[in-house]
Each structure stands twice: as structure tokens, then as C-alpha cells.
Design a binder for these strands. Structure first.
Length: 570
RNA sequence: GGUCCCAUCGUCUAACGGUUAGGACACCAGAUUCUCAAUCUGGCAAUACGAGUUCGAUUCUCGUUGGGAUCACCA
């Protein structure tokens, strides 16, 4: 590739003036050199990396975005660098109202808030802003005009139809599709043609004039994937769009911003890998030192309908949107731990050895991230992390989280819990603590289903209706008989062993086998085993088939509740 | 179709060219005087295929197959 900035402009100076005027549309913008003076080199220790996370405000935050943001944060933090958040809102059509705030809020809830850029309280920090691309329009224009002046950009008046027709033509001729070489409709048009189009006030995009050749190969080093050898770019991509906003495309915006913001490593999804030669050429055309790129894997999911993996999509997979994770209220630490494990496989060992350490203490390694295929989202494994995480919480912390969640998500339960704090305290302490805490709760939204039945109002409203289903196949008479037998022997003051003996006795008298062998030998002689009997009692007490130890539950509930739930036959 | 990336248990992955190919999640079985969970113990389970280099290949090379990404005035 030859040094392009020396290229003689191919457009007449008159046309360049008119194009510039059209793009500027009356506004007055600074020169590129003036802009550059404002963005001085950062004062950072040697080896410090400046990373940036650059989402588009499309209304939701992808779980993969958190993954990338985390990587940006770790790398910046560990090198004493800076992690910046930049909003890429150059596509006004796709922009969703309120997304910017949503993004910074979500980053905050995941603890990956940026060092620079929009913060979750809507303030902006940093001296390299603005950090929203639409507010940086003048800069892109200044660089684009620079390109126009050096002959590396030109206007293209082709209509969508013309462009589509060309692609169709290419396809029928089995040629590579795209706007390049002789297929670049306006690349070598005469000044007269361009002047005429300008006279006619036709809309135009400003295109890059590529000097690359698809037949020549170039080499660049990806920080994660290593040495890449690929064909040069030869596409004359649009740099400035034709609509009234005159905003840049991603390509120009990326190069200009990361240059001005003094970014040192560009982390982005690996879907950008193929356009990297273009970005390198663009940077060179602008006389900018190309960046170090690090193309990160994209988190995928198994397509239930197809066979293979595919990208997590917003429409098909609720898990793709972090709003889902927040809504379900998984502990953030668990999500981050899971994600970290995906990024660095040695994390799991570290995490096991340092269960109480702050995640930020983990020594993140770019090298370990280098595994380049996109991992599959494993919700089961994530839940495992989450259950562990919650089980490890101190009782106090656990109670606090439970109440906090209920307060904002389940007012009825919250009120019930707060009505009797001592009772609630005992309820929440069931089978917690000790060496093997119960792991029923993977996410805070599990709480109502897990503890709701302890509260009479909640029990009758939400759990009683499910009793019939849970006991499907057991006749009402048998249920009544079992309850009757149980209550006949029930002694609330009995200790666990006595309680259990009583239950066995009740079961036997109600016609259930205590001896498994006897049941197996003559099933017709019994209504079932002790387990079946216990199930009836359990379901009537809790509305559930799966609960902690029944004795403990009854002790906590108190005699009155036990009586009211099991005493009468209804 | 062109280009690029990738290929170890179902999943995430580990293994200076020499390991009985390891771990985690999931799954299965047994134990834990009731259910479920948890816990403990055990188990199932992988180097896509074919050549080549080598004393020796999961590891290096080539080919095949398979998967993924990309080819917009979206990012």
C-alpha cells in the first residue's frame, strides 16, 4: 500500500469545495489539526492500556456486552490504564429512546462502570469526550474532509437500486459482491459528472477510496488470535452517510474516536475481524498509527430447532438480554464469576481457592482468553455458581438480600415477613449455616416460591391452589385419613425422633407400609410407603412436594399453623 | 459462493511432542433411620476423519469433513 496522504486529489478543487459545503450544510467546524490539539496524549504509567467498551443504544444490553465490558475493565485496571464507555449512536434509525441510561445503569448493576464516559447517575467523567458519537459529529466531518482533500474520499451518488443491481450482476457473474474496483460506480467519475450530480442536488455518501487489492495479502497481529494473514481491503465503504444528520459509519467513527481518545487496545466482538483490514487501511490513509485489536469470542447458545450453535439473539433467547438476569435477580457476583470462567479457564480454580476474595483480585490474563471459539451459554452451570454464592452468604446478608428483593418485587410477601420479624428470621435460617447449607435459591426471584408458604395469607393465596395437583392420584378420602391419623398422634412438643416415631405410627395406622420389603412384596396390602404418607402431610403443610425437613418446618410454624393446615379436613 | 476463524467428554475447558487424556457443570448409581435439596462415594463420557513428519502426535504439516463469522448509508 503506498502512502496515500501524498496522493494528488482526483477531484477538482471546485468540486471539493462544493462537496465540503454540502456536507457541512452551513455549519462551521474546526480543522482536523485543531481537534487533534485538544486531545493530548494521556499521562499514564508505561504499559497502561486504554480500553473502551462501545455499545449501540438499541434498547437492551446483551450478556456478551457485559462480558466484553468486564474484559475492558480488567485489562485497564490491571495495567493502571483507563476503561472508557463510548456510546455508538450513529444509526439514528435503530436508536431506542432511553438506551444510553439503560446501558450505564446495567453496567453499574454488574459493577463494570467505566472510568470515563457516561456514569449511572447520568454525569459524564473524562477529558476525552464527548463520549457519545452523535455529539462528536464535527470531528468525523473534519477527518472526512481531510480525506476528501487528500483524495482518499469521494462522493457517491448511486441509488440503492443501482447498488442492488450491481450486486445482482456480480452474483450472476459469480463475482465477489461489493463496491470495489470497476464496480465502484462513482470512484472514477469525471468532475463534470460529479458537478452535474451536485447541481441536481442528488444525495450522496462520502466513500473511502481504497487502494488495497484483494489479491494482495496483508498481515496484522490480533492480541488474542495472533498473526492474521488476509487479503487487503479493496472496498470503497461509505464514511459519511447521505441523510441530513451526516453522521459517520462505524468504520470512520471507530478510527477517529479511538485515535482521539488514545485507546490502545480495541476490544470488540469477533464479528469485526473481517473488516479489520479496512480499518487498518483507513487509519493509514489518515496517517494514524493502526491500533492493536483484540477480537473477543461471542457468547452463543445451542439452537434448539437447528443443530449448531448460533449467536444469542434478543428475540429468541430471553437470556441474551441482561434485563432477564437482573429481573430474575441472579447474584451479580455469580454471573460475573461465570463469565470470568468463560474468559479465563483458570478462574474456576482460583475461585475455589479464594471463595471470599473480591473478583477484582483475580489476575486476568489476555493469553488465556485467546481460545477463540465462541462459548455456549450454560445456564445450569451459572445456576450452580449462583446457588453456591447464595449459600455462602452470611445469615445476616442473606436476610437482607431476601428482604430487599421482596420489598421491591413482592410487596405482599414483604409485608407478611415484616409483620413478624422474629418468625421470618427463623424461617430464613432453615437449614442454612453449618457445613452443608441448603442450595435451593439460585436467584432472588426464587424466594417467594421457597419461603412464601410460611405466611398464612400467601399460603392460602398462592400455595393452596396447587395442593390438588401435587397430590394428584391420591383420593380426598385417603388424604383426609392420612391427615387425621397424623394429627391424632401429633405432639408439638415432641423432639425430632419422637415426632418421627409418631409419624410412623400414624402412617401404619392409616394403612401405609413402614417396611419397604413388605410393601414391595405385597403392594396391594398398603396405600403406599412412608414416603407417600409423608408427601401428603408435606403438601398440606407447605403446598409443595419439595421442602426442607418437615419437622423443622412444623416447629417453626407453630402448633396453631399446623393445626389450621392439617387439622380440618378441607 | 468468496474471505477469515475454529475443531478434546453433552457443555466450558486442561494437558514444554512422551499423561491410565485431567478438572468443572450436567447426567447415572449407591449412601445419608421420610420427600426434595444439599452432602459423600462411585460411574458414564472426548482428542471429527485421512495422510504425512517423528522412536513417539491431542499437540507440528497437508487434505477432507463439520461448525462459526463476514460480504449494508447496522454496529
Amino acid at each position: 500500500m503506498n502512502n496515500s496522504t501524498q496522493q494528488t486529489p482526483r477531484l477538482s478543487s471546485d468540486n471539493i469545495k462544493r462537496i465540503t459545503a454540502s456536507i457541512l450544510n452551513g455549519s462551521d467546524i474546526p480543522l482536523r489539526s485543531e481537534i487533534e490539539q485538544q486531545y493530548v496524549a494521556r499521562d499514564l504509567p508505561a504499559g497502561a492500556e486504554v480500553t473502551r467498551f462501545a455499545p449501540s443504544p438499541t434498547g437492551f444490553v446483551h450478556i456478551g456486552a457485559i462480558f466484553t465490558a468486564m474484559i475492558c475493565q480488567y485489562v485497564a485496571r490491571q495495567t493502571e490504564g483507563i476503561y472508557v464507555l463510548r456510546i455508538e449512536d450513529t444509526d439514528k434509525k435503530r436508536e431506542v429512546e432511553g438506551s444510553k441510561d439503560l446501558i450505564s445503569r446495567q453496567l453499574h448493576t454488574f459493577g463494570v462502570e467505566p472510568d470515563e464516559g457516561l456514569q449511572d447517575d447520568e454525569s459524564v467523567t473524562g477529558d476525552y469526550g464527548p463520549y457519545v458519537q452523535s455529539e462528536r459529529k464535527d470531528m468525523y466531518l473534519a477527518f472526512a474532509i481531510d480525506l476528501l482533500n487528500t483524495g482518499r474520499a469521494y462522493p457517491c451518488f448511486a441509488t440503492t437500486e443501482e447498488l442492488q443491481a450491481a450486486v445482482k450482476d456480480q452474483q450472476s457473474k459469480k463475482l465477489r459482491p461489493g463496491y470495489y474496483g470497476e464496480w465502484a460506480l462513482w470512484r472514477d467519475r469525471s468532475d463534470e459528472d460529479i458537478a452535474a450530480a451536485l447541481d441536481a442536488d442528488k444525495p450522496f455518501v462520502l466513500r473511502f477510496r481504497s487502494e488495497g487489492s484483494h489479491d494482495t495479502r496483508m498481515v496484522f497481529d490480533d492480541a488474542l488470535k495472533g498473526r492474521m494473514e488476509v487479503p487487503e481491503n479493496d472496498l470503497d465503504v461509505p464514511l459519511i452517510k447521505s441523510d441530513e444528520h451526516r453522521l459517520p459509519t462505524y468504520h470512520l467513527a471507530h478510527v477517529v474516536d479511538d485515535y482521539l481518545m488514545r485507546v490502545t487496545i480495541v476490544f470488540r466482538g469477533e464479528e469485526w475481524l473481517p473488516s479489520t483490514p479496512l480499518h487498518i487501511e483507513l487509519a493509514q490513509a489518515l496517517g494514524i498509527q493502526p491500533f492493536t485489536y483484540a477480537h473477543t469470542p461471542v457468547i452463543s447458545i445451542v439452537d434448539p430447532s437447528g443443530g449448531g450453535k448460533r449467536k444469542l439473539s434478543k428475540r429468541k433467547d430471553p437470556e441474551a438480554d441482561v434485563a432477564y438476569w437482573v429481573q430474575a435477580a441472579y447474584p451479580m457476583r455469580a454471573i460475573k464469576a461465570y463469565l470470568l470462567g468463560l474468559a479465563n479457564s483458570n478462574f474456576e480454580d482460583w475461585y475455589r481457592e479464594n471463595p471470599d476474595a473480591a473478583l477484582s483480585e483475580f489476575e486476568f490474563s489476555l493469553k488465556k482468553l485467546a481460545s477463540s471459539r465462541s462459548p455456549l451459554l450454560d445456564m445450569k452451570k451459572l445456576e450452580d455458581y449462583a446457588k453456591d454464592e447464595i449459600a455462602r452468604l452470611t445469615q445476616e446478608h442473606f436476610n437482607k438480600e431476601v428482604l430487599a428483593w421482596c420489598q421491591t418485587h413482592d410487596h405482599d410477601l414483604y409485608d407478611a415477613m415484616m409483620a413478624d420479624p422474629e418468625y421470618t428470621k427463623r424461617v430464613l435460617a432453615i437449614e442454612r449455616g453449618g457445613d452443608k447449607p441448603r442450595k435451593d435459591v439460585a436467584k432472588w426471584s426464587d424466594v417467594p416460591g421457597q419461603f412464601g408458604y410460611f405466611y398464612d395469607g400467601i399460603f392460602s393465596e398462592r400455595f393452596v391452589p396447587g395442593i390438588a395437583d401435587a397430590l394428584e392420584g391420591v383420593s380426598a378420602d385417603d388424604q383426609g385419613a392420612a391427615l387425621g391419623a397424623f394429627m391424632a398422634t401429633y405432639d408439638h412438643t415432641a423432639d425430632k425422633d419422637a415426632w418421627f416415631d409418631n409419624m410412623k405410627q400414624a402412617a401404619e395406622s392409616a394403612g401405609y407400609a413402614l417396611d419397604r420389603k413388605a410393601l414391595k412384596a405385597n403392594p396391594e396390602n398398603f396405600k403406599g410407603g412412608l414416603a407417600d404418607f409423608a408427601k401428603i402431610i408435606r403438601v398440606h403443610t407447605t403446598g409443595k412436594t419439595r421442602t426442607p425437613d418437615l419437622y423443622t418446618i412444623m416447629q417453626i410454624m407453630g402448633l396453631q399453623r399446623v393445626n389450621s393446615r392439617l387439622g380440618s379436613s378441607e
